[in-house]
Design a binder for these strands. Structure first.
Lengths: 147, 147
DNA sequence: CTACCTGCAAACGGTTTGCATTGCC
DNA sequence: GGCAATGCAAACCGTTTGCAGGTAG
Protein backbone atom coordinates (compact mmCIF):
# COMPACT_ATOMS: atom_id res chain seq x y z
CA UNK A 1 0.00 0.00 0.00
CA UNK A 2 2.68 2.51 -0.97
CA UNK A 3 1.83 6.08 -1.80
CA UNK A 4 2.44 6.85 -5.43
CA UNK A 5 4.87 9.64 -6.23
CA UNK A 6 3.17 12.75 -7.43
CA UNK A 7 2.25 12.31 -11.09
CA UNK A 8 3.34 15.29 -13.06
CA UNK A 9 3.95 16.76 -16.47
CA UNK A 10 1.64 16.98 -19.44
CA UNK A 11 -0.84 14.58 -17.95
CA UNK A 12 -1.54 16.76 -15.01
CA UNK A 13 -2.84 19.68 -17.02
CA UNK A 14 -4.94 17.38 -19.07
CA UNK A 15 -6.52 15.85 -16.01
CA UNK A 16 -7.13 19.27 -14.58
CA UNK A 17 -9.22 20.21 -17.56
CA UNK A 18 -11.09 16.94 -17.42
CA UNK A 19 -12.11 17.88 -13.91
CA UNK A 20 -12.93 21.49 -14.72
CA UNK A 21 -14.85 20.58 -17.83
CA UNK A 22 -16.94 18.23 -15.74
CA UNK A 23 -17.72 21.08 -13.36
CA UNK A 24 -15.40 20.12 -10.52
CA UNK A 25 -12.69 22.02 -8.76
CA UNK A 26 -9.24 20.76 -9.41
CA UNK A 27 -7.87 19.59 -6.09
CA UNK A 28 -4.87 17.42 -5.34
CA UNK A 29 -7.07 14.64 -4.09
CA UNK A 30 -9.37 14.40 -7.08
CA UNK A 31 -6.48 14.88 -9.46
CA UNK A 32 -4.66 11.96 -7.88
CA UNK A 33 -7.79 9.86 -7.94
CA UNK A 34 -8.42 10.55 -11.58
CA UNK A 35 -4.80 9.86 -12.48
CA UNK A 36 -4.97 6.56 -10.67
CA UNK A 37 -8.10 5.56 -12.54
CA UNK A 38 -6.77 6.64 -15.89
CA UNK A 39 -3.49 4.86 -15.64
CA UNK A 40 -5.02 1.53 -14.67
CA UNK A 41 -5.91 -1.09 -17.22
CA UNK A 42 -8.63 -2.58 -15.07
CA UNK A 43 -11.40 -1.47 -12.72
CA UNK A 44 -10.18 -0.67 -9.23
CA UNK A 45 -11.80 -1.07 -5.85
CA UNK A 46 -12.29 1.87 -3.52
CA UNK A 47 -9.94 0.26 -1.06
CA UNK A 48 -7.12 0.06 -3.59
CA UNK A 49 -7.77 3.55 -4.85
CA UNK A 50 -7.76 5.01 -1.38
CA UNK A 51 -4.52 3.28 -0.48
CA UNK A 52 -2.79 4.43 -3.66
CA UNK A 53 -3.92 7.98 -3.07
CA UNK A 54 -2.62 7.90 0.45
CA UNK A 55 -3.39 10.93 2.52
CA UNK A 56 -4.56 13.09 -0.33
CA UNK A 57 -8.14 11.97 0.09
CA UNK A 58 -9.70 9.86 2.79
CA UNK A 59 -11.95 6.93 2.03
CA UNK A 60 -15.24 8.73 2.55
CA UNK A 61 -14.22 11.36 0.07
CA UNK A 62 -12.98 8.79 -2.39
CA UNK A 63 -16.55 7.50 -2.37
CA UNK A 64 -17.94 10.99 -2.81
CA UNK A 65 -15.56 11.81 -5.64
CA UNK A 66 -16.12 8.57 -7.50
CA UNK A 67 -19.85 8.94 -7.27
CA UNK A 68 -19.55 12.45 -8.70
CA UNK A 69 -17.21 11.26 -11.44
CA UNK A 70 -19.62 8.55 -12.43
CA UNK A 71 -22.52 10.97 -12.59
CA UNK A 72 -20.48 13.35 -14.67
CA UNK A 73 -19.57 10.54 -17.00
CA UNK A 74 -15.81 10.64 -16.50
CA UNK A 75 -15.72 7.35 -14.61
CA UNK A 76 -17.78 4.20 -14.70
CA UNK A 77 -19.01 1.95 -11.96
CA UNK A 78 -18.38 -1.72 -12.64
CA UNK A 79 -19.81 -4.69 -10.84
CA UNK A 80 -17.36 -7.56 -10.69
CA UNK A 81 -19.36 -9.45 -8.07
CA UNK A 82 -16.69 -9.11 -5.44
CA UNK A 83 -19.01 -7.64 -2.85
CA UNK A 84 -17.69 -4.15 -3.37
CA UNK A 85 -17.78 -1.59 -6.14
CA UNK A 86 -15.09 -1.05 -8.73
CA UNK A 87 -14.54 2.00 -10.88
CA UNK A 88 -12.74 2.57 -14.15
CA UNK A 89 -11.84 5.60 -16.18
CA UNK A 90 -14.49 6.25 -18.81
CA UNK A 91 -12.75 5.90 -22.11
CA UNK A 92 -15.21 6.16 -24.92
CA UNK A 93 -15.48 2.55 -25.90
CA UNK A 94 -18.10 0.04 -24.93
CA UNK A 95 -16.00 -2.72 -23.48
CA UNK A 96 -16.72 -5.32 -20.86
CA UNK A 97 -14.80 -7.57 -18.53
CA UNK A 98 -13.91 -11.17 -18.11
CA UNK A 99 -13.06 -12.07 -14.55
CA UNK A 100 -11.26 -15.09 -13.17
CA UNK A 101 -13.34 -16.40 -10.29
CA UNK A 102 -10.30 -18.00 -8.75
CA UNK A 103 -7.61 -15.30 -8.80
CA UNK A 104 -9.63 -12.19 -9.70
CA UNK A 105 -7.63 -11.41 -12.81
CA UNK A 106 -9.59 -9.04 -15.04
CA UNK A 107 -9.35 -8.36 -18.74
CA UNK A 108 -11.34 -6.31 -21.16
CA UNK A 109 -13.07 -7.51 -24.22
CA UNK A 110 -15.14 -5.82 -26.88
CA UNK A 111 -18.03 -7.00 -28.93
CA UNK A 112 -21.09 -7.16 -26.74
CA UNK A 113 -23.64 -6.35 -29.35
CA UNK A 114 -25.52 -4.15 -27.06
CA UNK A 115 -27.53 -2.15 -29.58
CA UNK A 116 -28.93 -5.18 -31.23
CA UNK A 117 -29.66 -6.97 -27.98
CA UNK A 118 -31.35 -3.93 -26.49
CA UNK A 119 -33.49 -3.73 -29.59
CA UNK A 120 -34.46 -7.38 -29.24
CA UNK A 121 -35.31 -6.92 -25.59
CA UNK A 122 -37.47 -3.87 -26.23
CA UNK A 123 -39.44 -5.73 -28.87
CA UNK A 124 -39.98 -8.67 -26.58
CA UNK A 125 -41.30 -6.86 -23.57
CA UNK A 126 -43.39 -4.05 -25.10
CA UNK A 127 -43.51 -2.46 -21.68
CA UNK A 128 -40.23 -0.63 -21.85
CA UNK A 129 -39.61 2.57 -23.72
CA UNK A 130 -35.85 2.64 -23.83
CA UNK A 131 -32.64 1.14 -22.57
CA UNK A 132 -30.14 3.57 -21.11
CA UNK A 133 -27.54 1.30 -19.67
CA UNK A 134 -26.46 -2.29 -19.38
CA UNK A 135 -24.18 -4.64 -17.54
CA UNK A 136 -22.39 -7.53 -19.13
CA UNK A 137 -19.54 -9.38 -17.50
CA UNK A 138 -18.15 -12.83 -18.01
CA UNK A 139 -16.85 -15.02 -15.21
CA UNK A 140 -14.56 -17.96 -15.69
CA UNK A 141 -11.08 -19.30 -15.18
CA UNK A 142 -7.87 -17.85 -16.49
CA UNK A 143 -5.24 -20.10 -17.99
CA UNK A 144 -3.13 -20.39 -14.86
CA UNK A 145 -6.07 -21.15 -12.58
CA UNK A 146 -7.65 -23.63 -14.99
CA UNK A 147 -4.83 -26.14 -14.82
CA UNK B 1 -46.13 -7.50 4.50
CA UNK B 2 -48.86 -10.09 5.03
CA UNK B 3 -47.98 -13.70 5.61
CA UNK B 4 -49.06 -15.90 2.75
CA UNK B 5 -51.51 -18.67 3.53
CA UNK B 6 -49.94 -22.10 3.49
CA UNK B 7 -49.47 -23.25 -0.09
CA UNK B 8 -50.74 -26.75 -0.49
CA UNK B 9 -51.73 -29.52 -2.86
CA UNK B 10 -49.81 -31.03 -5.72
CA UNK B 11 -47.20 -28.31 -5.68
CA UNK B 12 -46.12 -29.08 -2.18
CA UNK B 13 -45.05 -32.62 -2.95
CA UNK B 14 -43.25 -31.47 -5.99
CA UNK B 15 -41.30 -28.88 -4.05
CA UNK B 16 -40.48 -31.42 -1.40
CA UNK B 17 -38.78 -33.59 -3.95
CA UNK B 18 -36.93 -30.63 -5.40
CA UNK B 19 -35.48 -30.07 -1.96
CA UNK B 20 -34.73 -33.71 -1.28
CA UNK B 21 -33.22 -34.25 -4.70
CA UNK B 22 -30.91 -31.34 -4.03
CA UNK B 23 -29.82 -32.98 -0.79
CA UNK B 24 -31.79 -30.81 1.64
CA UNK B 25 -34.23 -31.66 4.33
CA UNK B 26 -37.76 -30.67 3.60
CA UNK B 27 -38.70 -28.18 6.29
CA UNK B 28 -41.63 -25.77 6.42
CA UNK B 29 -39.34 -22.80 6.10
CA UNK B 30 -37.43 -23.94 3.05
CA UNK B 31 -40.57 -25.27 1.46
CA UNK B 32 -42.24 -21.88 1.87
CA UNK B 33 -39.16 -20.12 0.57
CA UNK B 34 -38.95 -22.28 -2.50
CA UNK B 35 -42.68 -21.90 -3.16
CA UNK B 36 -42.32 -18.14 -2.95
CA UNK B 37 -39.47 -18.13 -5.42
CA UNK B 38 -41.17 -20.46 -7.82
CA UNK B 39 -44.42 -18.61 -7.95
CA UNK B 40 -42.85 -15.25 -8.65
CA UNK B 41 -42.31 -13.96 -12.15
CA UNK B 42 -39.37 -11.82 -11.15
CA UNK B 43 -36.31 -11.95 -8.91
CA UNK B 44 -37.10 -11.19 -5.27
CA UNK B 45 -35.07 -9.49 -2.58
CA UNK B 46 -34.26 -11.20 0.68
CA UNK B 47 -36.32 -8.63 2.51
CA UNK B 48 -39.43 -9.39 0.46
CA UNK B 49 -38.89 -13.11 0.70
CA UNK B 50 -38.46 -12.99 4.46
CA UNK B 51 -41.59 -10.93 4.91
CA UNK B 52 -43.67 -13.23 2.73
CA UNK B 53 -42.46 -16.25 4.60
CA UNK B 54 -43.30 -14.66 7.90
CA UNK B 55 -42.23 -16.59 10.95
CA UNK B 56 -41.42 -19.78 9.12
CA UNK B 57 -37.81 -18.72 8.63
CA UNK B 58 -35.96 -15.75 10.01
CA UNK B 59 -33.85 -13.49 7.84
CA UNK B 60 -30.49 -15.02 8.68
CA UNK B 61 -31.78 -18.41 7.65
CA UNK B 62 -33.35 -17.05 4.51
CA UNK B 63 -29.83 -16.00 3.57
CA UNK B 64 -28.45 -19.40 4.47
CA UNK B 65 -31.13 -21.24 2.54
CA UNK B 66 -30.86 -19.07 -0.55
CA UNK B 67 -27.12 -19.48 -0.63
CA UNK B 68 -27.52 -23.24 -0.41
CA UNK B 69 -30.22 -23.21 -3.10
CA UNK B 70 -27.97 -21.25 -5.41
CA UNK B 71 -25.08 -23.63 -4.88
CA UNK B 72 -27.33 -26.58 -5.52
CA UNK B 73 -28.56 -24.95 -8.69
CA UNK B 74 -32.22 -24.70 -7.76
CA UNK B 75 -32.13 -20.91 -7.42
CA UNK B 76 -30.14 -18.17 -9.07
CA UNK B 77 -28.63 -15.02 -7.68
CA UNK B 78 -29.38 -11.94 -9.73
CA UNK B 79 -27.77 -8.55 -9.50
CA UNK B 80 -30.24 -5.81 -10.28
CA UNK B 81 -27.97 -3.06 -8.98
CA UNK B 82 -30.28 -2.19 -6.15
CA UNK B 83 -27.66 -2.54 -3.49
CA UNK B 84 -28.99 -5.87 -2.32
CA UNK B 85 -29.19 -9.35 -3.76
CA UNK B 86 -32.17 -10.81 -5.55
CA UNK B 87 -32.93 -14.46 -6.16
CA UNK B 88 -35.09 -16.26 -8.65
CA UNK B 89 -36.21 -19.82 -9.12
CA UNK B 90 -33.88 -21.60 -11.53
CA UNK B 91 -35.99 -22.59 -14.45
CA UNK B 92 -33.87 -24.08 -17.16
CA UNK B 93 -33.77 -21.20 -19.59
CA UNK B 94 -31.07 -18.61 -20.03
CA UNK B 95 -33.03 -15.42 -19.65
CA UNK B 96 -32.06 -11.99 -18.45
CA UNK B 97 -33.75 -8.92 -17.07
CA UNK B 98 -34.63 -5.46 -18.10
CA UNK B 99 -35.06 -3.13 -15.15
CA UNK B 100 -36.75 0.25 -14.94
CA UNK B 101 -34.36 2.57 -13.14
CA UNK B 102 -37.24 4.75 -12.04
CA UNK B 103 -39.85 2.36 -10.64
CA UNK B 104 -37.87 -0.90 -10.44
CA UNK B 105 -40.23 -2.84 -12.66
CA UNK B 106 -38.51 -5.97 -13.93
CA UNK B 107 -39.19 -8.11 -16.95
CA UNK B 108 -37.46 -11.04 -18.51
CA UNK B 109 -36.13 -11.28 -21.98
CA UNK B 110 -34.36 -13.98 -23.90
CA UNK B 111 -31.74 -13.84 -26.57
CA UNK B 112 -28.45 -12.88 -25.03
CA UNK B 113 -26.20 -14.79 -27.34
CA UNK B 114 -24.00 -15.87 -24.57
CA UNK B 115 -22.27 -18.77 -26.25
CA UNK B 116 -21.14 -16.74 -29.18
CA UNK B 117 -20.07 -13.77 -27.08
CA UNK B 118 -18.14 -15.97 -24.67
CA UNK B 119 -16.38 -17.48 -27.64
CA UNK B 120 -15.47 -14.04 -28.95
CA UNK B 121 -14.16 -12.96 -25.59
CA UNK B 122 -12.02 -16.05 -25.15
CA UNK B 123 -10.44 -15.50 -28.54
CA UNK B 124 -9.71 -11.89 -27.75
CA UNK B 125 -7.99 -12.33 -24.45
CA UNK B 126 -6.02 -15.54 -24.94
CA UNK B 127 -5.44 -15.57 -21.19
CA UNK B 128 -8.66 -17.23 -20.19
CA UNK B 129 -9.41 -20.90 -20.47
CA UNK B 130 -13.15 -20.95 -20.07
CA UNK B 131 -16.23 -18.98 -19.17
CA UNK B 132 -18.47 -20.52 -16.55
CA UNK B 133 -20.94 -17.81 -15.86
CA UNK B 134 -22.10 -14.41 -16.99
CA UNK B 135 -24.22 -11.45 -16.04
CA UNK B 136 -26.25 -9.44 -18.46
CA UNK B 137 -28.92 -7.00 -17.45
CA UNK B 138 -30.45 -4.03 -19.18
CA UNK B 139 -31.45 -0.83 -17.42
CA UNK B 140 -33.85 1.71 -18.82
CA UNK B 141 -37.26 3.25 -18.48
CA UNK B 142 -40.58 1.49 -18.67
CA UNK B 143 -43.42 2.99 -20.65
CA UNK B 144 -45.13 4.63 -17.69
CA UNK B 145 -41.94 6.17 -16.32
CA UNK B 146 -40.74 7.37 -19.70
CA UNK B 147 -43.56 9.81 -20.27
C1' DC C 1 -29.88 -40.72 17.24
C1' DT C 2 -27.39 -37.46 14.82
C1' DA C 3 -26.70 -34.33 11.34
C1' DC C 4 -28.95 -30.71 9.48
C1' DC C 5 -31.70 -26.80 10.32
C1' DT C 6 -33.28 -22.99 13.06
C1' DG C 7 -33.81 -18.58 16.13
C1' DC C 8 -31.62 -15.08 18.32
C1' DA C 9 -28.22 -11.78 18.90
C1' DA C 10 -23.99 -9.99 17.99
C1' DA C 11 -20.37 -8.96 14.72
C1' DC C 12 -18.88 -7.45 10.19
C1' DG C 13 -17.61 -4.58 6.26
C1' DG C 14 -18.66 -1.67 2.65
C1' DT C 15 -20.85 2.67 2.13
C1' DT C 16 -23.20 6.98 3.58
C1' DT C 17 -23.97 11.01 6.34
C1' DG C 18 -23.32 15.11 9.52
C1' DC C 19 -20.77 18.77 10.52
C1' DA C 20 -17.19 21.98 11.25
C1' DT C 21 -13.12 23.43 8.60
C1' DT C 22 -10.34 24.25 4.55
C1' DG C 23 -9.04 26.02 0.23
C1' DC C 24 -10.32 26.57 -4.99
C1' DC C 25 -11.86 30.01 -8.12
C1' DG D 1 -15.84 35.67 -0.02
C1' DG D 2 -18.68 31.96 -1.19
C1' DC D 3 -19.37 27.55 -2.08
C1' DA D 4 -17.35 23.11 -3.29
C1' DA D 5 -14.33 19.82 -1.24
C1' DT D 6 -12.34 17.72 2.81
C1' DG D 7 -11.32 15.05 7.41
C1' DC D 8 -13.07 12.71 11.04
C1' DA D 9 -16.22 10.04 13.39
C1' DA D 10 -20.47 8.07 13.80
C1' DA D 11 -24.44 6.00 11.71
C1' DC D 12 -26.29 2.73 8.37
C1' DC D 13 -27.75 -1.47 6.45
C1' DG D 14 -27.32 -5.68 4.00
C1' DT D 15 -25.16 -9.80 5.14
C1' DT D 16 -22.51 -13.24 7.92
C1' DT D 17 -21.37 -15.78 11.98
C1' DG D 18 -21.61 -18.19 16.63
C1' DC D 19 -23.98 -20.91 19.37
C1' DA D 20 -27.47 -23.47 21.94
C1' DG D 21 -31.68 -25.84 21.13
C1' DG D 22 -34.96 -28.16 17.78
C1' DT D 23 -36.35 -31.54 14.27
C1' DA D 24 -36.33 -34.30 10.00
C1' DG D 25 -34.87 -38.71 8.35
Amino acid sequence: MSVKPQYQGADRKQLQSVLRDAGFRSTEGRLALLAELKQSNKPLSVEILASHIGSRLDEANVYRALESFAQAGIARRVDLQHGHVHYEFAHGDDHHHIVCTSCDKVEDFAGCEYDRLAETALKQTRNFAKVTNHSFELFGLCNSCAT
